[in-house]
Design a binder for these strands. Structure first.
Lengths: 357, 357
DNA sequence: CCCGGATTTGAAATCGATTTCAAGTGGAAC
DNA sequence: GTTCCACTTGAAATCGATTTCAAATCCGGG
């Protein structure tokens, strides 16, 4: 391996000069040229480990995500990677598996490896602890989920707005018993999406679009908590279908649970859009799912990209006040929320039935 | 940050002794205890960068994969991660995007970061060049795809066998004009899967199961090369359907292209199992696809796990002869290959029609 | 021709761990 | 009591870069 000393010897200068050539120090052009030539000839590439040790800072940023198999996070990871590449940083992808211990371990590694900074989609809002990073001055940015009380920049999605828009859409499509399958209690994303759902229902109750059914609290009767995974979505959906007065639509607060819900519906012979289904976050290969699925679109790539940009500012030493960037969701209306079958009421449909029903 | 020197001072010993305590040197128990206590009190954690510099070897392994959004590779990555974790290595995931330049850049980083080793699913069989690693003594293992002429261990899938089994299955299900959509020419995986397909067809021709159609070479007429992506699968399938005598089944050589093919079939109103579809590699959320898809199952997790184990042996200094491990595929028969409709021939079906047709 | 200030340069310190080597310690054997 | 050996220990070198500091050089101005 050729070191800076080898290059120095070959160019007839000191190592210090070589270092200056590559780091923008003042060196006479003639000498600099000689150094560059020697470096090129020897195929010199600075040893990043030595650099990190000396500078007390590496050129790698850690990205901690809870589920590498969820396409939402892989897309986010791509955003981070693209942003990082622009400034010569590499990205280490760490899959925490929603496991608080694994997450802690990775944070420790980030410190021990002297990473330049970390981007964290926290495994737990209450237990994830970013304070050791802060204590050692390592920049961090929270993404998608904001851990409680952490003094870090954050890039989030407007979950409440998304939940609201989704639920309003279902109401407009004339569903009237709209269920909500949300994530774990305590996760910020679960709670916010649920809050949006409730807010939309409240509005509908207030303006008379929706009328309370006897005995049930319409804001809670159709709510189920699950685990953001396929299995949880299945269980919650099955539970909802078993109700005495089952819902006629469901707002599922994440893509994987939507997959589970769709499976259960299919097994039960209940098909959208008669039964409305709306997923928060796109399902992979959605093109194969029939009827096509109405979804709240998440800016996953931008989430990652923005977080990485923010992190880079901090790494560069920015002392700006902490900021939280909130990105908006969109709504992609497709066939799964075309509206329930007409009952005897004889009202016109808002939407033509899809060719395959 | 507490360093080894701080611990040494606190325990009243030299840094060398502290190092020995943590690296299994000979130290009197009494002293060792004092060191451990001091280390615990100060929250000492060895600086991995300094370790790497001194030992000339890091504790991170690089995993280069061509497409992080393909669930096959994420599953493989999990296998690598689990194996690595058992020995305290961390995994850096590098997404090369099938781009030979990105790949080269990442290999350079692996060297400059003094990684312990790399596992590579090569972006290109002909252009991927692992020789700089070998030159610097960095262990490497090829996974899934074997780059040409590289002197490295490899963990591969028995692609030819898988392609053969798949095609035989389609023949047994009484499809007779079986197409093959394979990957890019020159990729080992494409070629091997295609070879399996051809070998099965040849056997069928030999024993009379299949009779050559006038004018066409049955071994090539229905073969299409594509790019292992959804778009490529679409184009190839569309091309096949536009033939004068279109096929009655297709063996698609990777999961993403199968998604594309299914989309096109659906748009054309052609539905399995009348038209047989078999995918090499599972499709994510396959549960939602109807009819369910027959697939060649790939041991993606085991692929990663095995590669990581192999790499660890090399890192530990094993001088064994280079080995290539080939893992077998399985065949999961589902509804999409239930057999074509009976024509006027009045032959009995081998398989009951699926309830939904 | 000499001086002051700016610029360029290299020697040496530094980052934090590991490891070599020589010195120190203790115990057993004679 | 002396000798020898095995075992512990710490001082110092080392990994490869960056950076400080002081010396060297160059320049124009007087």
């Amino acid at each position: 391996m050729t070191t800076i000393t080898d290059v120095a010897r070959a160019a007839g200068v000191s190592p210090a000069t070589v270092s200056r050539v590559f780091n923008g120090g003042r060196v006479t052009p003639e000498r600099a040229a000689r150094v560059r030539r020697a470096a090129a000839e020897l195929g010199f590439e600075p040893n990043r480990v030595a650099q990190s040790l000396r500078k007390q800072r590496g050129s790698v940023i850690g990205l901690l995500i809870p589920d590498i198999e969820n396409p939402f996070f892989t897309s986010l990871a791509r955003g981070v990677e693209d942003a990082a590449q622009q400034t010569g940083l590499s990205v280490v992808l760490c899959n925490t598996d929603e496991d608080i211990d694994k997450e802690r371990r990775y944070l420790g590694i980030a410190l021990a490896e002297q990473m330049a900074g970390v981007i964290v989609a926290a495994a737990s809002r209450t237990q994830t602890d970013l304070s050791p990073l802060a204590a050692r001055g390592m920049p961090a940015v929270a993404v998608d989920r904001r851990p409680r009380g952490a003094l870090v920049d954050a890039v989030l999605v407007d979950n409440q707005y998304g939940g609201e828009a989704a639920t309003e859409h279902l109401l407009r499509a004339r569903y009237r018993r709209i269920a909500c399958v949300t994530g774990p209690e305590g996760a910020s994303t679960s709670e916010e999406r649920l809050a949006g759902y409730r807010s939309a229902l409240r509005d509908a109750l207030a303006d008379g679009t929706l009328t309370p059914e006897d005995g049930d609290d319409p804001l809670t009767a159709y709510v189920r908590y699950a685990d953001f995974k396929v299995g949880g979505g299945r269980a919650a959906m099955a539970d909802l279908l078993a109700m005495e007065r089952p819902p006629d639509a469901v707002f599922v607060a994440n893509n994987l649970m939507a997959v589970g819900a769709l499976e259960v519906l299919r097994e039960a012979g209940v098909t959208p859009p008669e039964f409305g289904v709306l997923s928060f976050g796109g399902v992979p290969w959605a093109g194969l799912v029939r009827p096509s699925l109405t979804t709240v679109e998440l800016p996953s790539y931008e989430l990652g990209f923005t977080a990485a940009k923010l992190l880079q500012e901090r790494i560069a030493g920015s002392e700006k006040a902490l900021q939280t960037v909130v990105l908006r969701t969109g709504l992609s209306v497709r066939d799964s929320t075309g509206g329930p079958h007409d009952d005897a009421e004889g009202q016109g449909r808002l939407r033509a039935p899809s060719p395959l029903g």
